[in-house]
Design a protein around this nucleic acid. Structure first.
Lengths: 177, 177
DNA sequence: GCTTGTGTTCGAGCGCGCTCGAAGACATAG
DNA sequence: CTATGTCTTCGAGCGCGCTCGAACACAAGC
């Protein structure tokens, strides 16, 4: 569970809204030393997305990519860094529409920094909300797994996972067997 | 922040893979006393989804719903409980396809309980994975917000949020400004 | 009787984010 | 010279999960 370890360390570095450990982030998000120029296949491998998707992002106006003499795409380090950002944001659930907006702000110049921060803060809150929702769902699913009896009625077959203070009448948290 | 309080309490009840507090779940997931029969509008209100979606779920084979003399849907308590389950699972990201599979197992009889548990366990793991991904994204976005300078170069404008042990050279975790 | 409100069925359409395939341009290997 | 491989552009298609609208059926109130 190396991934979990990484995660755990990242979480330890993060108090609720508190300061972050730059170290931890660097361990997690370090881009390494990017080559000056990469082909579409190399970038696709790096980001674990398809060349089709890379072209799609370019068509969507999220990156500009130069061409070589044969018309092939040449991704410079800046383009790759932007694509790393974009794919991270996509993975975290930011819709293409918002990404387009954000990039348009970036391309508009430095005076849009406050607006970019607004976008980021809003997205941060969206992620937090989503994590809360998923944690709630997770609790419910774990409960259902723990108490699953397979019965059709309203009864809970208590498998000894309840606390001593359980005094509410048995009732299924997630019905429909 | 009443929602957060609820969340916090739910999380307190949940050790890593440990036993759950039935109480907490009941507080979170209590269905209340369901009426014997509900109209589509009432169920839609209860679940905060549209009547259109309810009909869609029925068409998808996820619930069977009786009709009254006028051909209107009558949702009994069992149907509503199932729909509560279904909407919870949808919210947690389970695809319709898996839900259809699960429901087909339920309708196939009690001997499918082990397979249902397989589905639930797999979904539980999916939720956990997703939470981990989102937590990682959250950390990165928070870092980017904290260090945002609006510059175009590779420099990080350190806003004093780093730890004393920070000894790595500044580098952006999330580029593309 | 007419209007309003709430429901019905059916099939089509939509927004999202890719994903694919066709047709062609080059570069290199044999 | 040909074959292979990697790329190009373009537009179409797809899977998902709804979402909507048209046309109709009742029931209650005026």
């Amino acid at each position: 569970m190396a991934t979990d370890d990484l995660m755990t360390r990242a979480l330890e570095a993060l108090g609720d809204d508190g300061p972050l450990s730059v170290e931890a982030i660097h361990r997690l998000a370090d881009l390494g030393d990017l080559p000056e120029a990469m082909t579409i296949a190399e970038v696709a491998d790096l980001l674990d997305i398809s060349p089709h998707t890379l072209r799609y992002y370019e068509r969507a106006g999220l990156v500009e990519v130069a061409r070589d003499g044969s018309g092939h795409r040449v991704y410079d380090a800046a383009a790759v860094r932007r694509l790393v950002f974009l794919t991270r944001m996509r993975l975290s659930g930011m819709p293409m529409r918002d990404l387009r907006h954000y990039i348009s702000l970036v391309d508009a110049g430095g005076h849009t920094v406050p607006q970019r921060l607004d976008v980021l803060v809003e997205h941060r809150d969206t992620i937090r909300r989503r994590i809360r929702e998923l944690t709630l769902s997770l609790t419910a699913v774990e409960y259902k797994i723990a108490t699953y009896g397979g019965s059709t009625g309203p009864d809970v077959q208590d498998l000894g996972t309840t606390t001593a203070t359980d005094r509410t009448p048995p009732r299924r948290a997630l019905p429909a067997e």
